[in-house]
Amino acid sequence: MGRRVVLGLLGLAGLGIALGSKANSALSSVAANDPTGLTGLIPGGGRFRFYSVAGAVEPTPLTEYRLRVDGEVERPTEFSFTDLAAMPQTHMTKDVQCVTGWRVPDVAWGGVLLSDILAQVVPTDAARALEFGSADGVYTESLTLEQAQRPDMLVATHLEDEPLSHDHGGPVRLYVAPMYFYKSLKWLDRITLTTAVEPGYWEDLGYDVDAWVGRSNGRDDAPTV
């Protein structure tokens, strides 16, 4: 009898592996329409999971926040939060897709286009790539200059029309819409223009540098563009 229980569990698990991705998306759609919030207690299910690679990260007060942009630029600049708020604001509602499989549909982002910031600092002729640094001191990311000029690359300050919270990477994070979410660096405080792509934290751990959703990391998720 005990053996039958064990075999039953193994069978259940096999079924779960075969059908789990369907069950997962069913759970996500339930969670999306759940007024009680109880589904938040179930793992998975259409919501953000919080990943932080460093130890405790101190929240930055808005008044002290600075985004330093340097390297291969004609005009190195420090942007305060007020500077960013004074620039043209861009809003986009797109899915977030994590490389580990979870996806959050229709997330409303707001902030400043990366290309607007590049236009202010003016990349030199030698500039080919951007390296992003985080206030956590560990997390780094990269984009080619060409990728960074796309109209869906955001220096994000708002999520769902609220100021971006610390846990979500606020006050300022990167939102790289067409790529897996590890490219969207949290607690952004530095952009250095470089002559070549410098692989970031997750890329050093084996993830793809060009992390297009559905066309990298051996995955075939629906694109988020």
Partner: peptide
Amino acid sequence: FEPLPDSVRTGATFVHDMFAL
């Protein structure tokens, strides 16, 4: 996870999560 297709990876995550619970 590298040799496994997406659906199997998601399925394994689902099973690992549920059994953890």
